[in-house]
């Protein structure tokens, strides 16, 4: 029994290891900073790119930061909004629904206002929730506002916020939950083994002694009585995947004026 359990654990560990190795051995990722609005100095660009590279390495995904003065001059089609401009930019650069993080700052959005957007797509769509995106943007606007700090501080705080929120991480209570499920499964297995030790019990009925062919159903009626209908509201999905691009991509996150 112990040998079988050990062999099983070893086999599962091997599969997990190979999967993790395969996952980590996936190809290189795009790290792109397009400062069309010229909000950053060369040294700031270099420093921010370094942070973006760290973010890409930690999240195993593409990282694209865009700054624009306005939404003109795009060499791709979009639906006229700042969000879609950024989505289509990303899709043109990396592809549709390819794992990645997208941050944009435009000085004039479709309403002529300054706007920042923080989005995730591909596997980052589920890792970056709308709430996390809101928090990262709020923190940057409140504590690193370019009006009082610099755009470098502003964008760098977003990159650091993403690095904290997006890489694979589990909540603290996941371990007790995993152990709890493990305990339930262990009790099922060991309980079935313990049950095998008890073989003495009263018979439930006399099914072994029914005279063959003696079953005779003389009356059989199924009468419909009434019906009830219950209605349950569908849960609103606010944790991601709530934005679609005109190119067919799906994104979590959000944007806000500041």
């Amino acid at each position: 029994m112990i040998k079988r359990i050990t062999a099983f654990i070893f086999a599962v560990m091997m599969v997990l290891s190979l999967t993790v190795v395969a996952a980590s051995a996936e190809g290189s990722y795009t790290v792109k900073l397009d400062d069309s609005a010229d909000l950053l100095s060369d040294s700031e660009e270099s420093s921010l790119l370094s942070t973006m590279q760290d973010l890409s390495d930690a999240c195993k995904c593409n990282v694209v930061f865009i700054t624009t003065n306005d939404l003109t001059g795009a060499n791709f089609s979009f639906n006229g909004t700042a969000d879609d401009y950024a989505f289509r930019y990303y899709e043109t650069t990396c592809g549709v629904n390819v794992d990645g993080l997208l941050v944009y700052v435009t000085l004039k959005d479709e309403g002529g206002k300054r706007k920042v957007g923080v989005f995730g797509t591909g596997k980052c769509e589920k890792r970056l929730t709308n709430e996390e995106s809101d928090n990262i943007r709020s923190n940057a606007i409140s504590n690193h506002n370019p009006d009082t700090h610099s755009y470098y501080d502003f964008l760098n705080s977003i990159a650091l916020g993403l690095k904290e929120a997006v890489p694979p991480h589990l909540k603290w209570y996941m371990l007790p939950i995993a152990l709890g499920i493990g305990f339930l499964i262990a009790m099922l297995i060991m309980g079935s083994m313990k049950k095998k030790l008890t073989t003495v019990e009263m018979q439930h009925g006399a099914a072994n002694y029914v005279r063959p062919g003696s079953m005779n159903v003389t009356q059989s009626r199924d009468t419909y009585l009434y019906s009830t209908v219950t209605r349950t509201a569908k849960p609103k999905n606010d944790s991601g995947g709530s934005h679609s691009s005109s190119g067919g991509g799906s994104y979590s996150g959000g944007s806000s004026n500041f």
Partner: peptide, 22 residues
């Protein structure tokens, strides 16, 4: 698009007959 619906229909079932034991 907004709701999940569950309709529960209730029935009265009647069976009569015989069965032999030995």
């Amino acid at each position: 698009s907004s709701y999940d619906y569950t309709e529960t229909s209730f029935y009265s079932i009647y069976r009569a007959g015989s069965l032999g034991y030995e």
